[in-house]
Structure formats: structure tokens, C-alpha cells
Design a protein around this nucleic acid. Structure first.
Lengths: 195, 195
DNA sequence: GCACCGAACTTTACACTGTCAATTACACGG
DNA sequence: CCGTGTAATTGACAGTGTAAAGTTCGGTGC
């Protein structure tokens, strides 16, 4: 708010990031442009240069924001899971993962493939997200190496999402099983809730 | 060869695809440009329009070629695996998967995220690649639903690769376990080669 | 042999992108 | 009230994809 009628924007950095995310969610990747973001924030096309290191800088900043949103989403869905069954807890986190990717396609893709700057805060935000899944994996790990088990769950989840978004869908659309089925396959040996 | 000195290229379509792949492997994504590909093929910048539906068309064609290379690579590595142990067979296919992605980063990314046209032959080529893994999964499926097991293996593998290429590496570089460890975790319940 | 036709390619032009340099408007400290 | 520096503007440039018009050539009908 505030920011009077001066040609100073107030806090442009923030506005540009939000404009970028909006563009991304409205028009997919490729709709995100320095100039369009600047226009949407109400400034001239060269203004962003004073706040980011060019387009890659803006992308990195948007990715950072994306990981923060991602973490918030994971966290919220985990808290919302009332059951204290370890599998239900893990499932809450991971279905939140899938849900976020579906709900923020372009942003998700940007976060995981299109960023090339990778500042320390960005890495940190990503690690925090990993931490959520890590925590939920622990109780189901059993006698396996925790790091390996976490990585497997993480890879399974991310791969499920990535393949689900890929355009030349390798497996026919109808026969793609639910995510839960896949996760159970990885966890089963220990938990045995079976049903 | 041949193609005389006429201003006709002979078969430009092919040359453009190969030029595109070369650009991709030399300068990563973003180095691939209609104009650069045209220049490398020795034609003017507007020539590609007569062979592809613009840039998306070229991308789709390159992706198709990518999947064909992918399939050839998977197939070759499978044949090269002398052991008839089912796990060794599956491992051969999947390590070929990982290897291909590492060896053709930009092309791999293009194949799985940057293509938006998705012609029928492209889908078919992708399905053929899926078929290789599918076949190797069957013997290790056990009492599980085959489709679910295949999908899990596929997702695990693809996720492992995708996360390995992602820039803001979510898990610290040192602690990332070998792919084989992850795959064993998914397969174990049946095979029990254990070591 | 020759005119013609259509496909392959070139030339030209345009809108749009990221980035840079020069310039202006403004808040603030002396 | 005047500098000074930050935030923004304007203008320019090279490069991008794409569309339209022009050119060159291989082949076909006569």
C-alpha cells in the first residue's frame, strides 16, 4: 500500500515477483517475461534491472517464492492430517506434493528445471521442503538406510508428478495408477496396514 | 551427400533436426534456435517454416528423434547385459535410462518438458521406450499389479534423474545414494538376491 | 522444345524479447 | 537550498519467431 504518486514504486521487487507468478499461472511458462512483469507492476520495461540480475535473477527469485509456497502447502496439509498413522502422515505430505504440482504447473516446472542461478536462500528453501518429506519418512523407514529410503520416496513422488506433466505421455492416460498405489509399493515391507 | 549445388538442400528436414540436436548438446537448451539451426544447415532463417510448424514443430521433431535415440540406447544396453538374472536385466535398462539423461541433458529435458505438440509418432516412440522397461519389470513384478509396479519403477527412475538434474538440488550432493540402492528398495520384496 | 506450375528457398518486414547506456525525477543529508 | 545517489525512464541494439512477398528451380503437359 502507500507509495504515493511518486515514480518510486515502494517495493517493486515484491511486486515483480508476484506479477511474474501471476503471469506464470495465467499463461504458462513462456508467458513470463521481464517486460510483461514490469508492465503488470506498473513500471517501465527496464526497471527490473535495478532489483534483479536480469531475467535469470527474476526467475531465481520466483523459484524461491515458489519453494516457500510449496513448503507452506506441504506443512499445512500435514497439520490438517488428523490421523497419527505414519503412512497417513506420509501420504498427506506426498499428496500435497502432487497437488501443488498440479495446481501450479508452470511455477513447479520453473522451480525444478528452468532456474539457473541457485542462490543460497533458494537452496535453503528447497532443503526445507525436502525436510518435510524426510520427517514423514523416518517412521516408515524400518531397517533400511534412512537417506536411501527418503531419496526413493522423493524420487518416486517427483517422477510421478513429472511424468504426469510430460506431454508425450509415455503410459496411456487411462492406465496410470493412483499415486497412493505406487507409494504403498515402496513402503509396504514394513508398515503392513494392508487394509 | 549428393544434393548438387542447387539451392534446394536435398533433405533439409533431416539436416535441421540434426543441427538442432547438435546445438542442444553444445549450448544447452536456449542455444537451440530456429535461426541458428537454419544457419547451421546452410539455409536462410525462414526455410524451416516449409518443413515444420514453426519452432514448436521443430521441437516436436527433435523430441521424436530423441526418443528414437533413447530407445536405441536402452535396447543396446539391455542386449549387452549377459546375465539373465531378472534384476540385472532391469538394472541394465534403468541404468541406461540414467546414463542417457546424463549424457544428453538438454535433449532429455526437451523430450520430457519443453515439447508441446505431441504428434502421434512422438507418442508412439515414447511408448516404445516405456515398453522396454515394462518388459524388464514383468519378471520382478511378483504378486503386484503389473501396471502399478511398472509405473512405480518408471517414476522412481525418472524422478531420480529429474532431481539429479534440478538446479537447486534439494538433497545435498554428497548424500545422494546410488540409483541401484533405490531400485533395490522397490524390487526387494520378491527377488531377494540380497547379495 | 517450351511454357507453366508448384515446391523449396530467400528476402524483407514486423512485433517482441533481454540488456545496455544515457537521462530524468525524487528523497534525503549537508 | 543545494548536491548526491538511488530508483526509475527513455532510447537504442542485437536477436528471436513468424508472416508475406519475391525468386529459383525441377518437373509435367503439350
Amino acid at each position: 500500500m502507500a507509495a504515493a504518486k511518486t515514480h518510486h514504486h515502494g517495493n517493486l521487487r515484491e511486486a515483480l515477483v508476484e506479477a511474474g507468478i501471476a503471469l506464470l499461472s495465467e499463461g504458462g511458462p513462456g508467458a513470463l517475461t521481464l517486460r510483461k512483469a514490469a508492465a503488470r507492476a506498473g513500471v517501465s520495461h527496464a526497471a527490473p534491472a535495478h532489483h534483479f540480475d536480469g531475467l535469470p535473477g527474476l526467475l531465481a527469485e520466483i523459484a524461491l517464492r515458489g519453494f516457500e509456497m510449496f513448503h507452506a502447502h506441504l506443512d499445512q496439509r500435514c497439520r490438517a492430517e488428523t490421523s497419527d498413522d505414519p503412512f497417513a502422515q506420509l501420504m498427506a505430505a506426498n499428496s500435497a506434493y502432487v497437488e501443488f504440482a498440479r495446481c501450479h504447473r508452470a511455477l513447479f516446472q520453473l522451480m525444478f528445471v528452468e532456474v539457473e542461478h541457485s542462490t543460497p536462500p533458494l537452496r535453503l528453501a528447497a532443503v526445507r521442503c525436502y525436510g518435510v518429506l524426510q520427517e514423514k519418512c523416518r517412521p516408515l523407514c524400518g531397517d533400511r538406510d534412512p537417506a536411501a529410503f527418503e531419496s526413493a520416496v522423493w524420487a518416486l513422488t517427483h517422477g510421478y508428478v513429472a511424468l504426469g506433466m510430460a506431454e508425450p505421455r509415455p503410459n496411456a492416460p487411462a492406465q496410470v495408477p493412483s499415486y497412493e498405489t505406487l507409494l504403498r509399493m515402496l513402503v509396504r515391507p514394513e508398515g503392513e496396514p494392508a487394509r
